[in-house]
Write a protein that binds this DNA or RNA. Structure first.
Length: 673
RNA sequence: GGGCGCGUAGCUCAAGCGGAUAGAGCAUCGGAUUUCUAAUCCGAGGGUUGCAGGUUCGAGUCCUGCCGCGCCUACCA
């Protein structure tokens, strides 16, 4: 609703500037005036034009306002301040269209989108950092789906790496467990917690004596080889921990479609296919001297070639004719294949990403792995899979939700695609980068960790799975539910235990998901229980509560809120809206309508900037405006029936938008709070 | 050393592409409603946007140089 009018206004302004002055502005900046009293849209373009047209901005603004004529949906344009042009919409018409939920959907990009998120090493319990990743990722998936995109959700499983090997070493060398004993343990409901401790102990054991690291190499090798007890334990453990991760995330309504595993990338020889392509295109070069002698290397992303590229960028075909004439400085080399012939993580990632775009010429085998209670199936990679399976990979766009520490690695993969000539795919590859979750020193102390004086002085301390230092995801969710439950128990003794627990869980999930979304991605979250367990102020429960209040009005008043939106004309006439939205003092109500109209606009912004925090902000602002409105206008005792219906229409629209926004954030609303 | 990011109220954070008076929450203090349930609302105090220049009609935002902090910079993943 909001965007449609904005586009129309921008178009008219553009046309007018062209015909009246012969100027073509690359962008028509349209924003919101500082207060609704001034109108709904504003543009400072007169300032920009003042120099070119050699006229004072105010004069230009006056000419535009006088000359532009009627614009459908708008009441009028006005000059304000030193030369702003403010636009006022026709409030009643706007409100009727908004209530009816008219969504003129512009044609967006087409093609399937792949979002990869979570990707937790399957060797220990998930912690708060993983929660941020999964919640950002899942919310982004919901944003894309809201915008009409078809999305596949993937969770990459590194089941053959060092981290898995380490815990296997722990089971074998420290715990002295056999395969069947590990199998026993893996049936424990929180097996991942057990692994968390083993992992921390193994890391300590390595520290005690560097000789112990030999055990890691052995385990790693055995796991890659397969067909032995070590590999079997690794497989058993990683599968069991993976199931635990899926259960943990399911508590937050986070589901995946496909779990590609590193073991299949190895066994199905994805790398061999990629290696051939990379060598043929001259992306990799074999070092013959220096510290990387015998390795296949490529240019580290972000480093500049020694010979500056000419204005005409060389085509890949031309490039191969004069291979690597410029020498890569050692510090600019990224080793892709080690001198012993094994491929590192980046290489496997390049192969994996060629597969994502359907450029590799190979595919995984697929089998069903996890059945969600809501009915959806999650698939996993295998060497030989089911004959009948959905098609994954070969998508048009990808988003990788991976923390900022890996941006160099991600850029290297993008560079590899580009140098292979896949520019379009490289352009459609987005590293959805976000900062880590750390702990405040106070929080670390609460958890019983001894801190150095240096650490105590820091603003935050990085979590470390290796040290077993961190807040486990399930512990946090449990604490949130327990805290919410206490409140619900006190407020709603009339409800039975099961109902109270269900409500507490909804509140806990709302609090957690909102908490993880309210910070912008680039901000490090210094985690603190006190803040995360808060249900007041700028929190998820605050927004949920606004919806509960709105719902209660309709329940007590005996109306159906959905019907009120759908069929608004039956309850309230356009004339009533016109008068109730334009009288003196109506601005505070109108502000609610305007804010409610911005949902899809905000969602588009979130997608364009890969920043879900705007949506959280929008939800809070809308809830805040509603709570103010709720206090000022006792609706059910309103005597003027027509005014009452107008207020109900306002409530119905806001409620609908709040529910919609919360749903995109993965938050549901309890019946009572 | 190089790359990326950050520095805004006591604390935690916002501030579309440079736009009108830099906003929220928490904390503190003061107030409201025996209601459509107060997980709420209203009010108050609190700011040299790290420092110094520059560009601009206009800078928290862009440019340059400093200062401080974090992350990355493995033949780890």
């Amino acid at each position: 609703m909001y965007q449609a009018l904005e586009h129309r206004l921008a178009q008219r302004l553009r046309d007018f500037l062209r015909s009246a002055y012969g100027v073509d502005l690359p962008k028509i900046v349209i924003e919101q005036p500082p207060a609704v009293e001034l109108g709904e849209y504003a543009t400072p373009l007169a300032f920009e034009l003042a120099r070119n047209l050699r006229k004072p901005p105010r004069k230009i603004a006056e000419e535009v306002v006088a000359g532009i004529g009627q614009i459908e949906g708008f009441e009028k344009l006005e000059v304000a301040g030193a030369g702003y042009i403010n636009a006022r919409v026709n409030r009643a018409a706007f409100a009727v269209a908004l209530a009816a939920d008219e969504q003129p959907r512009a044609d967006g990009p087409v093609g399937k989108v792949l979002v990869e998120h979570s990707s937790i090493n399957p060797n220990k319990a998930a912690h708060v950092g993983h929660l941020r990743n999964a919640i950002l990722g899942d919310t982004f998936v919901r944003l894309l789906r809201f915008a009409g995109r078809e999305v596949d959700v993937q969770n990459y499983i590194d089941n053959t790496g060092v981290q898995v090997a380490d815990v296997v070493v722990g089971f074998l060398n420290l715990e002295r467990k056999t395969k069947s004993e590990v199998e026993q343990l893996s049936r424990h409901p929180r097996f991942d917690y057990y692994c968390w401790d083993v992992y921390a102990r193994v890391s300590q054991w390595y520290e005690q004596d560097k000789q112990n690291l030999a055990a890691r190499q052995q385990a790693l090798h055995a796991i890659e080889q397969g067909n032995n007890e070590t590999a079997a334990i690794g497989d058993l453990m990683s599968i069991a921990v993976l199931r635990r991760h899926l259960e943990t995330m399911d508590r937050l309504d986070i589901e995946y479609d496909f779990l590609p595993r590193e073991s299949e990338i190895l066994h199905l020889h994805f790398w061999d296919a990629a290696f051939t392509k990379l060598k043929e295109a001259g992306v990799l070069s074999l070092e013959t001297e220096g510290k990387n002698k015998g390795c296949w290397v490529m240019r580290r992303a972000g480093t500049k070639p020694l010979i500056a590229e000419s204005a005409e960028p060389a085509k890949p075909a031309e490039r191969t004719t004069e291979p690597e004439e410029e020498k890569l400085a050692e510090e600019d080399q990224k080793v892709i294949v080690r001198s012993n012939g094994t491929v590192g993580y980046v290489g496997k990632d390049i192969a994996y990403h060629l597969w994502k775009f359907g450029l590799l010429g190979r595919d995984f085998g697929y089998r069903k792995f996890y059945h969600y209670p809501k009915g959806h199936d999650c698939w996993i990679s295998t060497t030989v899979g089911a004959l009948d399976h959905p098609h994954f990979g070969g998508v048009a766009e990808i988003y990788n939700v991976i923390d900022a520490r890996q941006s160099e690695e991600q850029n290297t993969v993008i560079e590899a695609l580009r140098e292979l000539g896949h520019n379009q795919q490289a352009d459609n590859y987005t590293h959805f980068s976000y900062e880590m979750v750390a702990l405040t020193p106070r929080c670390a102390a609460e958890l019983g960790y001894d801190l150095s004086e240096e650490d105590k002085a820091r603003a935050y301390i990085e979590v470390s799975g290796r040290k077993g230092f961190g807040v486990k995801a399930d512990d946090l969710i449990d604490a949130l539910i327990a805290s919410a439950k206490k409140e619900v128990d006190g407020r709603h003794p009339e409800l039975n235990e099961e109902e109270r627990l269900r409500i507490a869980t909804q509140i806990a999930v709302g609090a957690l998901r909102y908490f993880m979304l309210k910070f912008t991605k680039s901000s490090v979250i210094a985690f603190d229980f006190k803040e995360a367990l808060s249900f007041e102020g700028e929190t998820g429960p605050y927004v949920q509560y606004a919806v509960v209040r709105a719902t209660n009005i309709f329940r007590k008043g005996g109306y159906d809120p959905e019907d009120f939106c759908r069929d608004v004309a039956r309850y309230v006439s356009t004339d009533d809206l016109q008068s109730n939205l334009n009288t003196e003092g109506a601005n505070e109500i109108w502000e609610l309508w305007l804010a409610a109209s911005r949902t899809s606009y905000v969602i588009d912004q979130c997608i364009a900037t890969t920043e879900p925090a705007y949506l959280a902000k929008h939800a809070f602002q809308l809830a805040q405006l509603f709570n103010y409105f709720y206090h000022r206008h006792p609706i059910l005792i309103e005597e003027n029936e027509r005014r009452k219906k107008s207020l109900l229409a306002t409530t119905a629209v806001v409620r609908r938008e709040l529910l919609r926004v919360l749903a995109v954030m993965g938050i549901t609303v309890p019946p009572v709070m």
